[in-house]
């Protein structure tokens, strides 16, 4: 009895030790590709799938290769520290040195490459205000103008960067231009500025609102985020005079079609959300193209050796 137990414990220990000591070998790096994805409600997934030319996979699990694992941001990061044959994707802000960030089309995922537009796997965060002559009052218009100036200042950039996105470069601080917006010197606590649009931008938008309000006479800000399409609809489209009307709408995709028929002066970009394909540190693959990523997620490429040949 006793001997049996000791033998069993020894066997378990040996098994555990064997499990720990095995490491992957670059020479023979070949395994089935384990695919990790966010679930269909994720904005990062939408950005990634569109970025690799696989938009139908944005909201549809059925077109993905079989056997994929669905995880949240943290789950994908953790999995890449463990699973040497895995591949996943996260926002650039989540990337750290516990995992390997893949080059996209040969371009390294860095903030610099995102801003100079050479890194392609990204989506823009854009905004739209009401049309020039369509404001509830002159005061609201001036406050909205001040908000856009704040958004594009270094102070606005800091807020955006804190939330994990890559802000567009800026050259001035809010204090340098505050004087150009005398409305902000008044008490604006009776006025309300309404924000809406993309829900994947909610955190950034709320942080911007919170940072702006005390700088502009404590103007009341309301954030109501429902989806990118509502950015245009509720500022200059069908619903601009309805109960859900907004002063400023955000979108986490480029404006398109009828949205582009608006006055360019009312549109702008505040940031990029860069998405990075990540793998385990032991993975010898360094760079993938959009087509390769698409083939991996569609199940046309299933083994790492297929990617290492070329």
């Amino acid at each position: 009895m006793k001997k049996g137990i000791i033998l069993l414990v020894l066997m378990l220990l040996a098994l555990a030790a064997y499990g720990c000591s095995t490491t992957s070998d670059d020479e023979t790096f070949d395994g089935n590709i384990n695919i990790y994805t966010r679930d269909t409600s994720s904005g990062t997934r939408d950005g990634f799938m569109r970025g690799i030319g696989f938009p139908e996979a944005s909201g549809n699990d059925a077109v993905l290769a079989s056997g994929f694992a669905t995880q949240n941001n943290l789950g994908i990061m953790n999995a890449m520290t463990v699973d040497e044959y895995g591949i996943g994707y996260v926002s650039l802000a989540s990337v750290n040195d516990t995992i390997k960030a893949l080059f996209f089309e040969g371009v390294e995922p860095t903030e610099e490459n995102v801003i100079n537009d050479s890194y392609g796997l990204k989506r823009p965060f854009v905004f739209m205000t009401r049309a020039e002559d369509d404001w509830a009052s002159e005061e609201i218009k001036q406050i909205a103008d001040a908000f856009v100036a704040f958004l594009e200042s270094l102070d606005g950039s800091d807020v955006i960067a804190d939330q994990g996105a890559v802000p567009l470069p800026s050259s001035y601080r809010w204090n340098d231009v505050a004087a150009d917006h005398p409305i902000c010197a008044q008490d604006n606590s009776a006025l309300t500025l309404r924000f809406g649009g993309s829900d994947s931008i909610t955190r950034i938008a709320e942080a911007l609102s919170d940072a702006f309000s005390p700088r502009c006479g404590n103007v009341v800000t309301v954030n109501d985020h429902t989806g990118s399409s509502d950015a245009f609809k509720r500022t200059q489209g069908d619903e601009k005079d309805g109960v859900n009307a907004k002063e400023i709408g955000y979108s986490s995709r480029p404006f398109r079609n009828e949205e582009l028929e608006t006055d360019p002066e009312t549109r702008g970009q505040l940031a990029w959300d860069a998405i990075v394909a990540i793998v385990h540190k032991d993975n010898p693959v360094n760079s993938l193209t959009a087509a390769q990523l698409r083939d991996i997620y569609a199940g046309d490429i299933t083994r790492w050796s297929e990617l290492l040949e070329d």
């Binding site: 098994l15 499990g19 095995t22 384990n34 990790y36 694992a69 995880q71 999995a79 699973d83």
Partner: peptide, 14 residues
């Protein structure tokens, strides 16, 4: 690691 030791591949242990 256990899966690897047993000759199969798991999705990060999930």
């Amino acid at each position: 690691s256990l899966a690897r030791a047993m000759g199969t591949q798991s999705s990060g242990g999930n």
